[in-house]
Amino acid sequence: MSDDARSERAARPGGRTARTRAAVLDAVLGELEEAGYGGLTMERVAERSGVHLATLYRRWRNAEGLIVDVLGEIGTREVPIPDTGSLKDDLRALASEIAGLYARPRYRALVEGMVAAAVRSPAAAAALSEVFAGRNRLAGRIVERAAERGELPPGTDAAAVIAAVGAPFYYRLLIQRGQVDDALAATAAAAAHAAALSGAFTPPAVQDP
């Protein structure tokens, strides 16, 4: 992670400072939902949060700094990891969680804002990469358990399987500009499951010793 990203994600004190930060990050999400990344300004966030504009500039410096901090907050939240005893059902449950999240306008706007910020800011790009890599590692436990049960070939790349589940959602959101729904969740999970069973995410050296 870059030095800028580290500074934005320094230790989070409690008390008044924590309340101020929470108000600002909630205001960022609200602004993204209403106006998109193009409409996200320090002035609008200050007005919505009730935090003085000078405080915003001193702590976050710019809109990209705000996005970096939002990403850092997301990265600290617990990820629900399904454990049904079946890879197929676990992937389907995970896809349903993703669909439920991005069906909400606030989080759809956040995805769009994260990507836009990453294009402009190395710190935002590093934070975005770190958050998704961390989420894939955590959810990858689904795949590791399946391999331990003998459902998948040994050496299956767990993070790659999870990324395959999530990828159709981001294509739908960012490229097609369409809505996510349960049908997309079912298709994404089924495709990732079939590919994993086929050995698509297993290195050739592992497949053919």
Rank of each mutant, 00 (worst) to 15 (best):
V70H: 00
D208Y: 13
P13H: 07
F132L: 15
V119E: 12
L56H: 05
A93S: 13
P204D: 14
A133R: 15
L138A: 13
S2W: 02
F169I: 04
L29M: 11
V28D: 01
V79M: 07
V111I: 12
G140L: 03
R106Q: 15
I74M: 08
P204Q: 12
A200C: 10
G30S: 07
A10R: 13
I74Y: 04
Y57E: 10
E64L: 02
S49D: 05
G140D: 05
A95Q: 05
L87D: 00
L152C: 07
D26S: 14
A158V: 05
A116Y: 01
P122F: 02
G39N: 07
T76P: 03
V28Y: 01
A133H: 14
T84V: 07
R104T: 08
D69A: 15
A10C: 06
D83V: 01
L87Q: 00
V111S: 14
R12V: 12
A194G: 14
A158M: 07
R137C: 06
N136Q: 14
E47R: 15
D181G: 15
L174Q: 10
R61D: 07
G75P: 02
L101C: 05
H193W: 15
E151K: 06
L128R: 02
G72P: 02
G134K: 11
I142Y: 06
A23Q: 12
G72Q: 03
S129M: 08
R137W: 05
A109T: 03
P13L: 09
Y102W: 15
R172V: 13
A23M: 10
I67K: 00
T156E: 04
V24C: 02
W60C: 01
G14V: 07
V131A: 13
V206G: 05
